[in-house]
């Protein structure tokens, strides 16, 4: 039986973040916390693989206590178990410290049920780096496979998986030993509307919640702010461009002016000899 772990994160919905145009500050109240949209695809892919081969899907996240909501969302999608690691000592983690903490959680989960496959989202919409997935893979010393847009086969018996990795003008078919870690593209699947029984299960579900002390062999120095090599030194709002010339006159006149402007670049509009 396969054991698949999906790494997920609760994020503020950056689509909804509103900027106050006067003060140029963020109105965070308007941004509700949601399951990172990329991670929903990670969980969905894990569920599909489980449905195909049998097994268990666990989701794991490091985050504040309200992240339980994000875990429940994953149960709605079809995950079986959820683990939240939450502790003040995790706070302020950058990608390096995050991958460290999540790895420790996966190691602990692995003890009772060895993990065959780990799936991450392509990136989180707030961290926006895509670095955590490969980081976890390196720490566990398993192959990371990023940009995955199709899972062809997972063969537990023979210990390999075959996936497609997408790039700009095509894809490559890659085989990797198991366990391995996949970072999946949004295009890998569509997350369907969850069934009512899953909704019910999620509403009742209580995830496992661990603090640092519940994890094993943890080097406290590698956690949170302390374990983060990068620091944010300055935050500013991008300067606004000065603005251009508004053309005047009625529609016809405006277009006339515009035409004379673009036709100055006449070379753009003639054919370069066909090759």
């Amino acid at each position: 039986m396969l054991h698949i772990v999906a790494c997920i994160k609760q994020v503020p919905d950056t689509k909804i973040i509103k900027m106050n145009p006067k003060t140029n500050t963020m109105d965070r109240r308007t941004a509700p916390a949601i399951l990172n949209p990329y991670d929903a695809h990670a969980v969905e892919e894990a569920v599909r693989i489980r449905n195909r081969y049998g097994g268990t899907v666990s989701v794991v996240t490091m985050g504040p206590p309200p992240a339980v909501k994000a875990i429940k969302k994953c149960i709605e999608i079809g995950a079986d178990e959820g683990y939240l690691i939450t502790d003040r000592r995790f706070a302020g983690a950058d990608t390096l410290a995050t991958s460290y903490a999540v790895t420790k959680a996966i190691e602990k989960i692995s003890k009772t049920n060895p993990v065959d496959l780990i799936i991450c989202g392509k990136m989180s919409i707030d961290g926006d780096t895509g670095q955590v997935g490969p980081g976890i893979a390196r720490r566990l010393d398993i192959p990371p496979l990023t940009s995955v847009n199709k899972v062809v086969e997972v063969n537990q018996e023979q210990g390999y998986a075959i996936v497609h990795r997408k790039f700009e003008d095509g894809h490559e078919v890659v085989q990797s030993t198991l366990p391995c870690l996949l970072s999946v593209e949004k295009t890998i699947n569509e997350v369907p509307y969850s069934s009512f029984p899953n909704m019910l299960k999620a509403a009742k579900y209580e995830p496992h919640i661990w603090s640092v002390d519940d994890l094993e062999n943890v080097d406290i120095k590698q956690l949170g702010l302390k374990g983060s090599p990068t620091i944010v030194s300055k935050v500013w709002t991008p300067s606004k461009p000065e603005g251009g010339t508004l053309l005047e006159g009625d529609a016809k006149e405006q277009v006339e002016q515009l035409l004379s402007i673009i036709l100055e670049k006449k070379e753009l509009f003639t054919v370069k000899e066909e090759s």
Binding site: P192, Y193, S194, S195, F196, P197, M199, L200
Partner: peptide, 9 residues
């Protein structure tokens, strides 16, 4: 009956 798959309760 809800709008979800298997949505009767």
């Amino acid at each position: 009956r809800t709008d979800r798959p298997d949505g009767e309760v």
